[in-house]
């Protein structure tokens, strides 16, 4: 039986470089290392200027592509360490603004199983996840919607609960609170949320996100449907015909689907693909996101068949 994770739901969401991860109910076994590359293609034409949905010919369609290196290591059967690093490239289809590209934020997370309860034909798991992310390059967050990210250093605390039937069906939910550091921009003043700030420091309000998903996972196959939502707990709206700003109150809800399959050959290689669509938002683009990638698992332990966590 294959052991793998399905925790990498990377989404460079609309104008927010938002990476959602660690929301599932599984762990890598001890001394297993899973590495891979995921390619993400995110595109939007309509966006929400505050509550007003519109398009803008001066940007046309914004396309954000990223290639993310991911790694997950089973420090024990209860604790995984997860790292991600994307390279991001943005471009607009219309207007004159230059696209941007660079290495974005490094994320490192620890995922710990705090509860495991098995019944006759099912099981329940709960996890606590702490994650940290910080920009690895000095990219500017003050060129939205073409900035590659928001450049804040973040700490997240997440709780995940998972209930699964032994025949493979599961339901899962996860929620996180993210503390975000202030960011520095290149100009000495900015107008935001009804106020002129004589500072190059921008306060980034914290965010809360949650995901609910359900699916099937057995024998190297995973199929998953999810709903996710992220809210920024403060910040101003994009004003009428203004540019977006790094500390805008960016909210969005998405629905998505994910498929992953461990190929019969070569052994330990998994393909992974996902799709998501933004169904509602505020100060973000209405993204359609597709992702595809390959993950390879290395077993460093002699005893390969660790029970499913």
């Amino acid at each position: 039986m294959k052991r793998f994770i399905y925790s990498f739901i990377i989404s460079i969401a609309s104008i927010n470089a938002y990476s959602q991860t660690l929301t599932d109910g599984l762990l890598m076994p001890k001394k297993d290392l899973c590495v891979g590359f995921l390619y993400t293609h995110d595109q939007w034409e309509n966006y929400w200027e505050g509550g007003l949905k519109r398009d803008n010919q001066n940007i046309g369609t914004i396309t954000t592509q990223s290639m993310t290196f991911v790694a997950n290591y089973g420090l024990s059967n209860k604790l995984n360490i997860i790292a991600m690093l994307p390279y991001v490239k943005t471009q607009s289809s219309s207007g004159t603004l230059a696209g941007m590209k660079d290495v974005q934020d490094l994320s490192v997370a620890a995922k710990y199983r705090i509860l495991a309860k098995d019944f006759a034909a099912s099981g329940f798991r709960a996890f606590a996840i702490g994650s940290f992310s910080t920009p690895l390059t000095n990219y500017t967050p003050d060129f939205l919607p073409l900035s590659i990210g928001l450049a804040s250093t973040n700490l997240s605390g997440r709780l995940t609960a998972n209930y699964h039937l032994n025949q493979g069906w599961y339901v899962n939910t996860s929620g996180a609170y993210t503390w975000r550091s202030n960011v520095k921009i290149d100009r000495p003043s900015y107008f935001s949320d009804g106020q002129l700030y004589f500072s190059d420091q921008v306060k980034m309000y914290d965010t809360f996100d949650f995901v609910i998903n359900t699916g099937y996972y057995k024998n190297g196959l995973q199929a998953d449907l999810y709903y996710s939502q992220q809210n920024t707990l403060g910040g101003g709206d994009i004003r009428r015909q203004d540019m977006p700003f790094v500390s805008n109150r960016m909210n969005f809800s998405k629905v998505g689907a994910l498929l992953m399959y461990y190929l019969p050959k070569p052994k330990n290689l998994a393909v992974r693909a996902s799709f998501s669509y933004t169904i509602a938002g505020r100060n973000v683009g209405q993204s359609t996101t597709v992702m595809g990638g390959l993950l390879y698992t290395l077993h460093f332990s002699k005893t390969n068949n660790v029970p499913n966590p």
Binding site: K78, G130, F132, S181, Q195, S199, K203, M204
Partner: peptide, 27 residues
């Protein structure tokens, strides 16, 4: 040994919000 990274992360989670985020925006 397993608890160490957990402990470090959660300590960081507690400490970060204490750091003042509000900025002085008037000249």
């Amino acid at each position: 040994k397993f608890y160490i990274p957990i402990l470090v992360t959660f300590l960081a989670l507690i400490l970060l919000p204490i750091r003042c985020k509000d900025i002085d925006f008037t000249e």
